[in-house]
Write a protein that binds this DNA or RNA. Structure first.
Lengths: 350, 350
DNA sequence: TTGAAAGCGCTAACAC
DNA sequence: GTGTTAGCGCTTTCAA
């Protein structure tokens, strides 16, 4: 085993070690063009013996091709995004493309910076969460001349393609299900973060559907930071202390919803008869709770998969693929144990 | 706003638009060397108007510097790793360095491939989880001529630097605490994954400490895949059905431990008197549970921070920094509600 | 099947 | 303070 070299190895080193021209070495290493088995053998051997690792920087510059896909998401701490990432990786694994993640922390300026950094590596495509971006970001995306897929949300106008769900519609659907189940005094608990546009849209859709039924939100509670499960508990306690006769709580995500559920169970609140509960996202965690929280699947796996497929096909088929598609997926309500027709209204069971 | 150009913009375009030489444009854009305010102004204006994004590929090739740090971790679904990532990002944010993540799915071959891919971008440093790698991977790391920090684990010999905890010791510490609290019939529940070396080492340390006290594990249960919380429930049920007189369950991670705790609460098992419980990692989720599970902080935040600092200082101070340091952090036991002196043995309260 | 020449877009180093 | 020249390590293209 050789010592750490001062200077990284180059094609030329392999060329000299194998007695084959740089060009042919390059061909062997990329499996391009016809090379005789004999020379191929020689080259591979030399490369391995030396421990040569090709320099993609140089390769990318020369070939004007970078097999990277920039994936820009708000956070890694919210399990939703790692899940989307996983789906993207799975699809790209069958292509020469490789995902590279950038995290914005839900901040527009940060998104702008991350985007600039990533684009300066000239990736083959961009997958970016959300439809809301600064003007500068939009300009960069448009000017990059590569396929761009905005994911998670479809309420708005995409720069290029989009795959997601309508969060406004999701909020509406949940409101309708809650009303139909007979609940009448509904509280909303959510994040304070004004930059989480999708949470905001769900809230808007939710209140809109209530309004259509002549109702409005009876009380609400917002939080920021901290353990979501713990916050869910605290908020639930607070809102119930303040407005004890609420008969339903709609949480803007499953983690705080799970906290609320645990609080209710601890305190002998009869769920779902005295109080119904629902969250959002369909996170796997819910499956282990004493009772399953009603929720709505946000189609994360499919979103990731579809987005990656769009990028892959557009990279294959030239930048001009079927452009500007907007794919809206349909989330489904999972009623779990916590969103059931209230007995008094139950002329017939569901 | 200009349309998407066929050809990405280059320095030359900015140079022509501003009437300043390419070299000077480059200097302005990198804040290097003295440039008069007047020309700087002109250049910046032209660059912005055109929407120019520098080509880092070319820049990196020319300058032989790539400000990327490869971070190689087993998974994104286990919240532990996103947490480490966050700490790394925070530190690197104050430097010109940028983290790039690669995920191995706990597979050595995959690690080898990911490593090869990342090294071919010639990053300035590598942060990689664990001390166990294939020979080929080790050779690549040694040959790369850049600082390498192996994280999470210190039981073994690092290639270069290492920051982590001793999982063997962590297992031992937990066993000692459990024994000292008076528990005698201990079950172990963990992952089947033979490639999770750190879980394995904790197990080894645990049994070793039991042996020293003349005890051994009374029963054990392993799982793979699925919702950790749900699996924790199932496994707990299974092991207690099989061996009802266990008085303690040691879980190899907090998620299955939380599942076990919820199972016990649901089934009226008196925790911690009839049955004690402990997990590992100190995940934030535990704070929202009805009772807090005993656990052990795995120092993830500090590990990420220290690792990033080592890379940053070594990149600054030339490749030869203080080499080969091995930093072992000390995890602390959090007893929560589920690891308490058993009443019958409690001559004195703790 | 192989090789030689000419860049890819930028920056180091040196002139002016 | 600004410009010129010569590559960085590879791949494209074309010739042999």
């Amino acid at each position: 085993m050789a010592d750490a070299p001062k200077r990284p190895l180059t094609l030329r080193d392999v060329s000299e070690a194998s007695g084959v021209s740089e060009m042919t070495v390059s061909r062997v290493l990329r499996n391009r063009g016809d090379v005789s088995d004999a020379t191929r053998e020689k080259v591979l051997e030399a490369a391995k013996a030396l421990g040569y690792v090709p320099n993609k920087i140089a390769g990318a510059l020369a070939s004007q091709r970078v097999n990277l896909v920039a994936v820009i998401i708000p956070s890694l701490s919210n399990m939703v995004f790692p899940e989307v990432m996983t789906a993207i990786s799975d699809v790209l694994d069958d292509t020469p493309l490789q995902p590279v993640v950038g995290v914005t922390n839900y901040k527009k300026e940060r998104e702008e910076k991350v985007l600039y950094e990533m684009l300066s590596w000239r990736p083959s495509g961009v997958i970016i969460a959300g439809l809301e971006h600064s003007e500068a970001s939009k300009a960069m995306l448009r000017g990059a001349g590569i396929p761009v897929v905005e994911i998670m949300d479809t309420d708005g106008t995409p720069i290029d393609a989009a795959v997601g769900i309508s969060h406004r519609r999701a909020g509406r659907m949940m409101a309708e299900a809650i009303i139909k189940a007979g609940y009448r005094k509904i509280g909303f608990l959510g994040t304070k973060m004004p930059l989480d546009h999708r949470a905001r849209k769900r809230f808007e859709g939710f209140t809109e559907a209530l309004a259509k039924a002549g109702m409005e939100i009876a009380d609400q509670e917002f939080y920021e930071g901290g353990s979501a499960l713990g916050k869910g508990r605290e908020m639930t306690e607070a809102i119930l202390k303040r407005t004890p006769d609420l008969d339903f709580l709609y949480f803007s995500n499953d983690m705080i919803g799970a906290g609320g559920l645990l609080y209710c169970l601890d305190n002998g609140i009869d769920v779902p008869n005295q109080l119904g509960l629902a969250g959002f996202n369909g996170v796997e965690l819910l499956k282990g709770l004493p009772r399953t929280l009603a929720t709505m699947d946000s189609c994360r796996e499919e979103i990731g998969r579809k987005a990656a497929e769009i990028i892959a096909s557009r990279v294959e088929g030239g930048i001009e693929g079927p452009q500007g598609q907007k794919i809206e997926l349909t989330p489904t309500i999972e009623r779990g144990h916590t969103l059931r027709r209230k007995p008094k209204d139950a002329a017939y069971p569901e």
